[in-house]
Design a protein around this nucleic acid. Structure first.
Lengths: 105, 105
DNA sequence: AAAAACTACCTTGTAACGCAAGGTACCTTG
DNA sequence: CAAGGTACCTTGCGTTACAAGGTAGTTTTT
């Protein structure tokens, strides 16, 4: 799976997952694993970026097994940003497909 | 238009354009312009990469106006690579859309 | 009980790629 | 002759993903 293709989409994917339910980094990686893979070295910097941009807030929660988890929750800005990213994504896909020709199935 | 989203797709787009007809860099940029934009600072290194990977060959041709043009032609490897990139792209788009949810239109 | 494996957090350095800004040279048009 | 278009190119920068590594607690295996 191409590393390059993922650029820019991982942030959107993470936001989309958090849009359904709060989550913690380690779990998000495994949720993405089927389909769009992502390594741990990628997600932690990404989550900090989202937090710096105020797209998510965090809270700690104990776990029954293993260390405590740092949960992330989408903010209102995060939801808006997700909507923007999605429509930008769909537009982009269409533009690329136009260039690739009409033979895409 | 997001810089990051383009990563990896521009190479594919250029190959797709050359699949229809030979072309020169300056012209490819303008052909892409409607839709997926690309700057000159991007295409020249990219074309050299394609050449190094033997996906294209080049030849010079005079132009009626302006300096001579360096045309690029797809090789057989280039055509195969394009096919691979395309199917990888479609697969990737599907995977991302799955994560985004079923509400894509 | 010791060793291995899993959960869950994190950091550092590297590589790829696209872009802005610049530069060269030729040719046409005002 | 100056301005702008064609067409080539380079350098340095910023962003992002990844591999590799590190910490610490818990569970499972031997």
């Amino acid at each position: 799976m191409s590393t390059q293709l993922k650029k820019g989409t991982l942030e959107m994917c993470v936001l989309a997952i958090l849009d359904h339910a709060d989550g913690y980094a380690y779990d998000i990686v495994s949720k993405l694993a089927s389909g769009v893979e992502m390594s741990e070295g990628t997600i932690y910097p990404l989550m900090r970026r989202l937090q710096n941009d105020a797209l998510v807030t965090t809270y700690l929660a104990e776990s029954e097994q293993g260390p405590p988890r740092k949960y992330y929750r989408l903010t209102e800005s995060g939801r808006k940003e997700l909507a923007k990213l999605k429509s930008g994504w769909w537009e982009f896909v269409e533009d690329v497909n136009k260039i690739l020709g009409d033979d895409y199935e």
